[in-house]
C-alpha cells in the first residue's frame, strides 16, 4: 500500500471538526478521486499527505513510513516523493514556463545536467512545447495548469496530489486536464485528486471516495455510486 489512513480525525485549533475517523488505503498505480461538497474535508485530507497539517488523532503512512511521527527534518524528503498541483496554480509570475519548472528541481538540489534534460521532457509531456519562454501571465488558465502539472512531475514523484486542479477552468479545458492526468497515471504515477465537480468525476469511471462532513460515506472502485 502506498497510502494508509488509520482512524484519522482532525479538529482545527478554532474547534472546526474537519475529519472524523477516516480510514482509507490507496495502492500504487491507483487513480483516486476525493469527492464531496465544499467543506467536506477534502483539502484537509490532502494536506495531511504532505504534512502541512497533522491529524489530531490517528496514523498516516506513506510507503509504510509514518507521516505523523516523522522528524521535522525528514519532511522535505517526504515531499520530494510527491508532486502537488494546486487549484490556483501557484506559478511564479516573474519566471518563464521553463524557469517555473527548473525552479522546482533547483530547490530540491537537482544537478544542472538533470535539470537540462528533464525540463524539456516534462514540458513536452504536458503539451507546452514552444511555450518554454512565455510568462504565466501570457498563458490561458488551462496552459497555466499544465505548467503546474509539469512542475509537479519534474522530480519524478511516486504520488501526484491535485486539489481541485480544474476548479478555475471551464468544462472543456477541465476535460483536457483530466486526460493529461489519466495519461500520467497510465505511465505509472499514483494520482489522488480532490474535486467537487460531479460530472467530471462520474465520466472518469475511476475509484471515488465520497466525503461528507469529514466522514467517508462511500468508497466505490469505479464510481458506481455516482451513476
Amino acid at each position: 500500500m502506498l497510502v494508509q489512513f488509520y482512524n484519522v480525525s482532525k479538529i482545527y485549533p478554532n474547534g472546526a471538526k474537519a475529519l472524523d475517523d477516516i480510514s482509507i488505503q490507496i495502492d500504487r498505480g491507483e487513480f483516486v478521486f476525493l469527492m464531496g461538497p465544499s467543506g467536506a474535508g477534502k483539502s484537509t485530507l490532502v494536506k495531511m499527505l504532505f504534512r502541512e497539517e497533522l491529524p489530531t488523532r490517528g496514523q498516516i503512512f506513506l510507503a509504510s513510513r509514518s507521516v505523523v511521527r516523522m522528524k521535522r527534518s525528514d519532511v522535505p524528503k517526504l515531499r520530494r516523493n510527491m508532486g502537488i498541483v494546486f487549484q490556483d496554480f501557484k506559478l511564479l509570475e516573474r519566471k518563464t514556463v521553463a524557469e517555473n519548472v527548473s525552479f522546482a528541481m533547483e530547490v530540491v538540489g537537482a544537478s544542472s545536467k538533470d535539470i537540462r534534460t528533464r525540463v524539456p521532457e516534462v514540458i513536452n509531456m504536458v503539451g507546452l512545447k514552444g511555450k518554454e519562454n512565455s510568462f504565466p501571465g501570457e498563458l490561458s488558465g488551462g496552459e497555466q495548469q499544465r505548467v503546474g502539472i509539469a512542475r509537479a512531475l519534474s522530480n519524478r514523484p511516486l504520488l501526484l496530489i491535485a486539489d481541485e486542479p480544474t476548479g478555475n477552468l471551464d468544462l472543456n479545458t477541465s476535460q483536457e486536464i483530466m486526460e493529461l492526468l489519466f495519461d500520467i497515471n497510465r505511465k505509472g504515477t499514483t494520482v489522488i485528486m480532490a474535486s467537487h465537480a460531479r460530472e467530471l468525476v462520474r465520466a472518469a469511471r475511476k475509484r471515488v471516495i465520497m466525503l461528507q462532513n469529514g466522514r467517508v460515506v462511500d468508497d466505490s472502485p469505479n464510481g458506481e455510486s455516482l451513476l
Partner: peptide, 17 residues
C-alpha cells in the same frame, strides 16, 4: 511568502531557503 510556501511544499530544506 508565496514563493517560500511553494518551496516548502516542493520539498526544499529550511537551510536551502
Amino acid at each position: 511568502r508565496k514563493e517560500i510556501y511553494l518551496m516548502k511544499l516542493i520539498g526544499s530544506t529550511d537551510w536551502f531557503i
